[in-house]
Nucleic acid binder design. Structure first.
Length: 251
DNA sequence: GTAAACCTGGCA
DNA sequence: TGCCAGGTTTAC
């Protein structure tokens, strides 16, 4: 990292005044992920941690790419002669920080990753069942229960599992929970294969749109026919978030 | 639990 | 003009 330009520090969490100083001069040794956070491990043991929020993008640009700055390019991380990483976020719901990943408070309350076979399974969900009246939608959206799922994919997972968003966890059988966990892996595998959902803002790390928006079965498809049975998709609000389901295929 | 807060942009 | 949006936190 040869230089860090901060055009706007007021993200969801205001950018630390030391952010640029901590990143400049470091070498990025590994790129990973923790739930919805991108994690760039640095050569001094700290990590550059990034969350894209709703409208954020982090895009690599070649040295030859035009230098023109967009109004919402808030942070530019220059990589010497190798180009730069540009963080753009119209709504500024994203955040970034440089700190030790171990003991990072952003990670403190995260549950098992949605793709972690050992952590996220039917037994994990069964253990929550006892004293809760929460809906499946609410439970899957809770990053402390299972980390990494957002509104689009929870809608798609519930459709794939044949379960309604408002169904109570308590009233969901072990077999249905097994189905739900399997559906999570299937939906995420397909979403990753198609590089995510570009419904309005999302671009991948090299500026390409994802393709999953063309494959979604129910999300934002109110009053359109279910791809399986042609019944019209319903829209409801669960926990302040829009939910979509097929009243025939999902129970 | 539920609402409101943080922001901008797009659409009816 | 008002309402909605891939997220998360904070306050009643």
């Amino acid at each position: 990292v040869s230089r860090v330009d901060v055009a706007c520090a007021s993200l969801r969490r205001p950018l630390d005044p030391d952010f640029g100083r901590r990143l400049k001069g470091r070498r990025i040794e590994r790129i990973g992920r923790r739930a919805k956070y991108l994690v760039f491990d640095l050569d001094d043991g700290l990590s550059w941690i990034v969350h894209l929020g709703m409208s954020g993008r982090l895009v690599y640009r070649q040295p030859s790419d035009p230098a023109a700055r967009d109004r919402h390019d808030h942070v530019v991380v220059h990589l010497g002669r190798h180009g730069r990483l540009v963080f753009n976020d119209a709504r500024r719901f994203g955040l970034m920080t440089v700190e030790a990943a171990a003991g990072c408070d952003l990670f403190a309350r995260l549950g098992p990753d949605a793709l972690d076979q050992d952590g996220f399974n039917a037994a994990h969900l069964t253990a929550l069942k006892r004293h809760t009246r929460r809906s499946l939608k609410d439970v899957l959206m809770d990053q402390a229960v299972v980390a990494g799922l957002g509104n689009i994919y929870v809608n798609e997972i519930l459709f794939a599992a044949g379960l309604r968003p408002r169904r109570r966890l308590q009233r969901t059988s072990r077999a249905q929970l097994e189905r739900l966990v399997a559906a999570t892996r299937e939906v995420l595998a397909e979403a990753i294969e198609h590089r995510g959902s570009s419904i309005s803002d999302f671009l991948d790390g090299i500026g390409r749109k994802g393709g999953y928006q063309w494959r979604r079965r129910v999300y934002d498809r109110a009053d359109q026919p279910c791809p399986r049975c042609r019944t019209l998709i319903k829209a409801v609000v669960v926990g302040q978030r829009s939910s979509f389901y097929c009243p025939r295929c999902q129970s």
